Simulated assay, not measured.
Amino acid sequence: MRDTEPLTGEPLALDLVNTRPASAEGRTDLLDTPERLAAWLALEESRLGSETGGAVPTKADLAAVHAVRDHTETAVQALLHGQEPPAAALRALTQAQRAAPAVRELTWNGEAVTPAVRRTGPLGVRLAAVLAEAAADLLTDPALGRLKECEADDCVMLFLPAHPRRRWCSPARCGNRARVARYYQRHKQPASVARTGEAQ
């Protein structure tokens, strides 16, 4: 897995926060264009339901998603370090949910009444509401006490480990790098030993 590809599989709010991995130049934004946002939404489609509705995101939609991501990351980082999340971040997440509340739209399918969750408003407002709701679920989940940051030196990814010994955000990304580095360290000869061997 390349670092330019978003990690998925954590709670939706963490997947969103993890779209800003570290790179040699600093933090990289994997949602820096409407097109890349559309690709990420496709990856998360099973969890977003019908909120995208096949719509193509705009720059305004991207800005709304970025705002929720920033507030979520601020709150999560505070909790990760045992601090109180800033009230402004929590208020902003609540306001994002309020802007496009979920309504259970009732329909008849021929046999029974069925509910479908619907939100109204522009795509960015709907996405911000869904993602802020996911952040609220994460921030109030007792499992958040297990939250970890990847142990790789150059990684800032966050995850909720199912197993307490998990150390890496991804076995294919940082876990593999760490194994390769350990192998290299175990098998490389000190320079002085190599020179001695060449002289004989």
Score class of each variant (00 low, 15 high):
7 L>C: 01
9 G>I: 04
16 L>D: 01
17 V>L: 04
21 P>L: 01
24 A>F: 14
26 G>N: 06
27 R>Y: 01
27 R>K: 05
27 R>N: 05
29 D>E: 10
34 P>N: 13
41 L>C: 12
43 L>W: 05
44 E>Y: 08
44 E>F: 04
45 E>V: 12
45 E>H: 11
48 L>R: 07
48 L>I: 02
50 S>E: 13
53 G>D: 13
53 G>I: 05
54 G>I: 06
54 G>C: 08
60 A>T: 13
61 D>N: 11
69 R>D: 06
75 A>C: 05
75 A>T: 08
78 A>T: 11
80 L>C: 07
82 G>I: 04
88 A>I: 14
89 A>C: 12
90 L>R: 15
91 R>K: 14
93 L>Q: 09
95 Q>R: 15
96 A>Q: 11
96 A>W: 01
100 A>R: 07
100 A>I: 09
101 P>F: 10
106 L>Q: 13
108 W>R: 09
109 N>G: 11
117 V>I: 12
120 T>M: 09
122 P>V: 04
124 G>W: 00
124 G>M: 00
125 V>D: 09
130 V>K: 07
132 A>Q: 00
133 E>A: 14
133 E>W: 12
135 A>K: 00
138 L>G: 02
139 L>G: 11
139 L>A: 09
142 P>D: 08
143 A>L: 02
144 L>A: 10
145 G>M: 04
146 R>P: 04
147 L>P: 08
154 D>F: 10
158 L>Y: 01
162 A>G: 10
162 A>N: 09
167 R>N: 05
169 C>G: 13
174 C>R: 07
182 R>C: 08
192 S>P: 03
193 V>G: 10
194 A>R: 07
196 T>S: 11
197 G>A: 09
197 G>Q: 03
199 A>G: 09
200 Q>Y: 02
